[in-house]
Nucleic acid binder design. Structure first.
Lengths: 172, 172
DNA sequence: CAATACATGAGAATGGATTTCATTTTCAAT
DNA sequence: ATTGAAAATGAAATCCATTCTCATGTATTG
């Protein structure tokens, strides 16, 4: 593997004597707490996952990391994402036939509202729905452990576009 | 293809002069209304899909049909299931990395409560949750077209089992 | 019955995810 | 710092559900 890269990731401590910039929880700690060995690959992945956009695929992570550390492999990304998912650091959402989407789970719980036309994703949370879900589970004697609520529709912008299209067709 | 099978499926009309047993909507009509040619494969698939268990995979359908008409292919099952899904006769649910589950959609809308341990699926419907979903979509200006709500938990039986296990371990 | 547009089956291809395995790296004990 | 055992890695092979391809077969129209 190419170890020559002088790059040092922002939130990964280079020495053991901490005191870098704030850095919430250092990646090293997270990895150690999982009982795993600290490797540059895992630090890289963590860095990307925590600082990147809200939703990403394994491919996204791979492509971002590979720019810095060209010798990382798919397998490592998938493996570690899986580990993070199992440990609930990351939420994995697999819908449709498309690649799994992940997100760093430290933020508040939320569900998704996705636009069928443009793919835009809006996050929302609704206490009342959550409560009702609990209620439903309880009614059947289930202990609720998780849920997936994904709403699909057409966003305001795309609705507008569709109206314009229809107008155009009518005046043809 | 082997056309020698004397088997005639229960709900598929052999002649054009109807009057078989009740048979809600004849399969032929459904297929014709879709603008497709009526083939024995499609009739077979429809028959299985409509008379079988609530939830099934493409594989399930294939395996059931293949017993009667050994020369059917995967492709045909997948193709027709896709068609039925597009036409909203069938609902396709793809969760996790597992094969897609399908169900005949003519029944009332419902969501699912799945047991993590034994895989049991309970169907439920909750008007209030549906209403709230609409409300959420509206708040963001979306026109809601569909949703996926899947609850996961541990069913009563499996909860019981887990308690027993824990007891056993404690007394070791 | 012929013409033809559509449907089918077999197998190849796809694509995301996982596994395998030889090699490399981490890290605790020197 | 050195070392050795266990763990982690990358590359490639593999898996598996699903889709595609295409030569052949079949339903439907007239």
């Amino acid at each position: 593997m190419d170890k020559s890269s002088p790059l040092q990731l922002p939130t990964s401590n280079s020495g053991t004597t901490g005191r870098t910039r704030k850095a919430s929880v250092p990646g090293k700690k997270i990895i150690r707490d999982l009982g795993l060995k600290v490797t540059t690959q895992r630090l890289d992945i963590l860095e990307v996952v925590r600082s990147g956009p809200n939703h990403f695929t394994a491919q996204d992570v791979f492509e971002t990391v590979v720019k810095r550390s060209p010798d990382i492999g798919f397998a490592t990304v998938y493996r570690f994402l899986r580990t993070l998912t199992d440990a609930s650091f990351v939420t994995e959402i697999r819908m449709g036939g498309m690649p799994a989407r992940y997100e760093w789970a430290a933020k508040d719980h939320h569900d998704h509202l996705t636009c069928n036309s443009c793919g835009k994703i809006v996050e929302f949370e609704n206490e009342e729905i959550e409560r009702l879900q609990e209620k439903v589970a309880l009614r059947f004697g289930f202990l609720l452990t998780s849920h997936v609520l994904e709403l699909y529709g057409v966003c305001p912008e795309c609705r507008q576009k569709k109206v314009s299209q229809a107008d155009a067709e009518n005046s043809r």
